[in-house]
Simulated scan of single mutants.
Amino acid sequence: MSGRDTVWPANPHALYREHGYSPAVRANGFLFASGQVGARADGTPPEDLGEEVTLAFDNLAAILEAAGASFDDVVDITLFMIDPDAAIPFVLEQVAARFGDGPRPALTAPGSTWLAGFRFEIKAIVKLPESAA
């Protein structure tokens, strides 16, 4: 397993250990972030969809920070939404806030029927800055 390592945010939520997956893997100058849901510290989602979407982006931000990267380094995101019509206004607000005027990452947004009790998930591929690679 040389050439790759796991990146953990400073304050990981409970789901990583509960379900046995890595928040992100750094390899060959890239960071592959697992799908981030709007999980609070205990692994549960908030009731409010806007808060859930914001928290998912916050969880991704924590991983980026732990890897020495930022949203400016994200090259590709995949968004999963149980109800795209309900989630997309919150998602577009977060994309504008996190990525600014661009360049923005490539984006794929399939609808989903199951996200383990969550309604939104964001997965990212990041080209790490040389100092973080």
Rank of each mutant, 00 (worst) to 15 (best):
residue 45 P to G: 09
residue 54 T to G: 15
residue 14 A to R: 14
residue 14 A to Y: 06
residue 28 N to H: 09
residue 66 A to G: 03
residue 12 P to W: 10
residue 61 A to T: 12
residue 21 Y to C: 08
residue 35 G to W: 04
residue 32 F to R: 07
residue 42 D to R: 10
residue 24 A to P: 00
residue 48 D to M: 00
residue 53 V to T: 04
residue 47 E to H: 14
residue 65 E to I: 04
residue 44 T to P: 03
residue 60 L to E: 05
residue 65 E to R: 14
residue 40 R to H: 06
residue 32 F to T: 10
residue 47 E to A: 14
residue 62 A to W: 05
residue 14 A to I: 04
residue 50 G to W: 07
residue 31 L to M: 09
residue 21 Y to I: 05
residue 11 N to V: 13
residue 23 P to A: 15
residue 66 A to H: 01
residue 39 A to K: 03
residue 51 E to M: 09
residue 50 G to C: 05
residue 54 T to F: 03
residue 18 E to P: 00
residue 33 A to T: 10
residue 36 Q to G: 00
residue 44 T to H: 06
residue 66 A to C: 06
residue 39 A to G: 03
residue 26 R to L: 03
residue 21 Y to G: 04
residue 68 G to R: 08
residue 53 V to Q: 11
residue 22 S to E: 14
residue 43 G to T: 03
residue 69 A to N: 04
residue 52 E to N: 09
residue 23 P to H: 10
residue 56 A to S: 12
residue 44 T to M: 10
residue 37 V to G: 12
residue 59 N to Y: 07
residue 66 A to Q: 06
residue 18 E to I: 10
residue 19 H to D: 13
residue 30 F to H: 13
residue 45 P to Y: 09
residue 47 E to C: 02
residue 56 A to C: 07
residue 51 E to I: 02
residue 38 G to L: 05
residue 52 E to Y: 04
residue 24 A to G: 12
residue 35 G to N: 02
residue 23 P to M: 13
residue 25 V to F: 04
residue 53 V to H: 02
residue 26 R to Y: 03
residue 36 Q to C: 13
residue 17 R to I: 00
residue 52 E to T: 04
residue 10 A to Q: 07
residue 40 R to T: 08
residue 9 P to E: 10
residue 22 S to H: 14
residue 25 V to D: 00
residue 42 D to Y: 01
residue 10 A to D: 11
residue 34 S to C: 13
residue 9 P to L: 12
residue 42 D to V: 03
residue 58 D to I: 11
residue 46 P to C: 04
residue 28 N to Y: 07
residue 10 A to L: 12
residue 59 N to P: 10
residue 57 F to S: 08
residue 39 A to Q: 02
residue 31 L to A: 03
residue 9 P to F: 10
residue 31 L to D: 01
residue 34 S to Y: 15
residue 38 G to K: 01
residue 66 A to T: 11
residue 10 A to E: 11
residue 68 G to Y: 11
residue 69 A to R: 08
residue 55 L to S: 07
residue 60 L to V: 13
residue 18 E to N: 14
residue 69 A to T: 04
residue 33 A to S: 14
residue 14 A to K: 09
residue 42 D to S: 05
residue 56 A to H: 02
residue 56 A to Q: 04
residue 61 A to R: 14
residue 30 F to A: 14
residue 58 D to C: 11
residue 22 S to C: 12
residue 55 L to H: 06
residue 57 F to E: 01
residue 48 D to P: 04
residue 17 R to E: 15
residue 39 A to W: 01
residue 22 S to Y: 05
residue 30 F to T: 13
residue 34 S to Q: 11
residue 58 D to N: 14
residue 13 H to W: 11
residue 45 P to R: 14
residue 53 V to S: 02
residue 26 R to N: 01
residue 42 D to F: 01
residue 57 F to L: 11
residue 59 N to F: 11
residue 42 D to P: 05
residue 20 G to M: 08
residue 8 W to L: 13
residue 68 G to N: 14
residue 33 A to V: 15
residue 33 A to R: 01
residue 21 Y to M: 06
residue 62 A to Q: 15
residue 35 G to V: 08
residue 31 L to E: 05
residue 52 E to F: 03
residue 26 R to T: 06
residue 35 G to E: 04
residue 12 P to V: 09
residue 12 P to G: 13
residue 42 D to C: 00
residue 49 L to M: 08
residue 18 E to Q: 14
residue 45 P to S: 12
residue 27 A to W: 09
residue 17 R to Y: 02
